[in-house]
């Protein structure tokens, strides 16, 4: 221990702390992206992130204990020159074995409770009367969004109102896709022959990077989308303008409808 103690007192702490602070401040940019699970923008993603964080901290605690024991064993009990130690004749210790069966079991039970709570929260369907309904259809290689109550259909861009739960019903026109907007919430697969379900909510206005997460063919890597969350008033304005465009039946709109139908 003495050399370690000398090292600790001998270090120039202020200098070290400065270096550390600089490294940490620079650190941020290595852990950001426009599609980050770590930067939730709605209650679903926030709930998922908190589950990730709690489990990560518990797991880090376990890691430190296990690796501490492991490190102690390989350092303390390595064979040395002229090592005259007697090798332990221990073949087991039921108290220890019970300890490291029961403690992990309790941890797992705790994580299970959190898991089940979150699972039911995320799958509880919001009131359809007060929430926006959107049908999502995956195609090779684009996303189509239909607003059945509003008579609107879009491709690539999903417009949603801020602060409102949005019910998504997903299916696919061809192969399996997976709908993923990391900052708003986790994935749900769009499966041909099935209707799957999820809900999302954006807490603040902005556009969110979305993508297909299930391998769906040669264009899988290009199958992006953007979720555009607008303040409610702006969203209503967008709905009106879209309804006007749809009813105008322009040549472009007809061509678009035909192309989508042909998929």
């Amino acid at each position: 221990m003495r050399p370690v103690g000398r090292l600790l007192s001998g270090l120039r702490w202020p200098a070290l702390l400065t270096v550390l602070a600089v490294a940490l401040s620079g650190c941020g940019s290595y852990f950001t992206s426009p599609a980050s699970v770590l930067a939730p923008a709605g209650p679903v993603a926030a709930r998922q992130l908190s589950l990730i964080q709690i489990s990560l901290y518990i797991m880090l605690g376990i890691f430190v204990i296990v690796i501490g024991l492991w490190g102690w064993a390989i350092i303390r009990y390595r064979a040395r020159r002229n090592d005259t130690r007697e090798v332990s004749r221990s073949t087991g210790d039921s108290r220890l074995e019970i300890l490291w069966t029961v403690v992990p079991l309790l941890i797992v039970i705790y994580l299970t409770v959190l898991t089940v709570q979150t699972e039911f929260y995320l799958t509880r369907e919001p009131n359809p009367a007060t929430s926006l309904q959107v049908s999502v259809t995956g195609h090779q290689f684009f996303w189509q969004f239909q607003y059945p109550g509003l008579g609107i259909s879009t491709v690539h861009n999903l417009y949603i109102p801020v602060g409102e739960k949005v019910n998504l019903t997903l299916t696919s026109a061809d192969v399996i896709h997976s709908f993923w907007v990391p900052e708003l919430g986790g994935k749900t697969d769009a499966i041909p022959g099935y209707h799957t379900y999820m809900w999302l909510e954006a807490s603040r206005a902005g556009s969110y990077f979305g993508e297909c997460a299930q391998f769906c063919g040669v264009g899988h890597y290009l199958m992006h989308m953007t979720v555009i969350a607008l303040p409610p008033a702006q969203f209503q304005a967008w709905v009106k303008s879209m309804q006007k465009k749809t009813s105008s039946s322009s040549a472009w709109a007809l061509e678009g409808t035909r192309l989508v139908a042909a998929r």
Partner: peptide
């Protein structure tokens, strides 16, 4: 142990919605 730890994290279904296929 690292693989096992991330395995437990992946087992938590609602968190897996984020990890899955990433």
């Amino acid at each position: 142990v690292i693989g096992g730890i991330s395995g437990v994290m992946l087992a938590m279904a609602p968190a897996d919605f984020q990890y899955n296929d990433s």
